[in-house]
């Protein structure tokens, strides 16, 4: 079903307006990051830099080691977290897709219950900090996201629909053990599903500020998002209470110019916006596979 010619033009106009609404804020942030601090003082933020300057980026790349380190923490969390969680989720969901696996329904319920009922943030926090002692460790930002019930369901459905049982049987006939069957036969034909999970997880780790907000106090363990959050909080405190400025000992929190802060924003979102269009089809696939009942 297609719209008529006139209606189509109307749709185009609406969508072009929406496109502007989508992109304008991002361009504004980019423009602020490329403006000289003097022009921001004089004219405020504007959508086209009044005075073009790279000083904000130079400042970020030159001075505080904390920013570089936060970038490193983010990259470490993203790489290690994504690799581990993709492996663990894959290994967990594959047996659930096997029709000859006896404990299929037991473990499906095991995972479904966690989707229906959760212990709530307080007991989760106390378990993580008091029982596992995760506070102020890098693992606090990796372990809690490794398993994800929703992704298990997606992967199970993916294995079920895309891996013919005859392939597994042929492996069994040849005497391969289950691990060889999984890694040599099943994984190669399941790469699109694996890629979907990996991308979603990479995004979760890259964008995460919730785990550091709960568990991280040490500045050297700040990731990029958390660093941005702390900077924001500091600005807020400075705005609300001028006295606070003198007592803010941590100099990294007082990144001077608005431009530098927005430049840090651009650095934090850049990789995602750059990479995302190439992988869009995997995201969409993941969403639609997950919505299949069964």
């Amino acid at each position: 079903m297609k719209a008529g010619k006139k209606a189509n033009i109307v749709l185009h106009i609406i969508f072009i307006l929406m496109t502007i609404a989508c992109l304008f804020p991002l361009l504004l942030v980019l423009s602020i990051s490329l403006s000289s601090s003097k022009s921001i003082m004089d004219y405020g933020y504007s959508i086209i830099p009044k005075e073009f300057s790279l000083e904000a980026y130079k400042y970020i790349l030159s001075t505080p080691i904390t920013i570089v380190r936060a970038y490193g923490v983010t990259i470490f969390n993203t790489v290690v977290g994504t690799a581990l969680s993709t492996l663990i989720i894959g290994l967990f969901s594959y047996p659930l897709s096997r029709p000859d696996f006896k404990f299929k329904s037991v473990f499906t319920y095991y995972i479904l219950i966690t989707m229906l009922f959760s212990g709530g943030t307080v007991s989760w926090y106390i378990v993580c900090s008091n029982v596992f002692h995760l506070s102020n460790t890098i693992w606090a930002m990796i372990l809690p996201y490794l398993m994800n019930a929703w992704f298990v369901i997606i992967m199970r459905t993916f294995f079920k629909t895309n891996v013919p049982y005859s392939i597994i049987e042929s492996g069994q006939l040849d005497g391969a053990n289950e691990y060889i069957i999984f890694f040599k036969l099943v994984l190669p034909i399941s790469l699109p599903g694996i890629a979907t999970i990996a991308l979603f997880q990479a995004l979760i780790y890259w964008n995460d500020w919730w785990l550091p907000i709960m568990f991280i106090v040490k500045p050297e363990l700040y990731n990029l998002q958390f660093l941005l959050q702390r900077m924001m909080q500091n600005i807020q405190q400075i705005n609300e209470n001028a006295k606070y400025m003198s007592s803010a000992s941590d100099q990294l929190m007082n990144i001077p110019s608005d431009g530098a802060r927005m430049a840090l924003c651009i650095i934090a979102m850049g990789p995602i916006l750059f990479v995302y269009p190439f992988f869009q089809k995997y995201f969409i696939q993941g969403l639609t596979v997950g919505s299949v009942k069964g």
Binding site: F92, F101, W124, I126, V127, F182
Partner: peptide, 29 residues
Amino acid sequence: KQLPLLSMMIPGAVLVFMFSYMPIFGIIL
């Protein structure tokens, strides 16, 4: 013959227990 398949699920099952079930028990808080 189920054992190898079961062993694949250990890491995931342990993590779910740690970060989902233990907080569920913790609801007594």
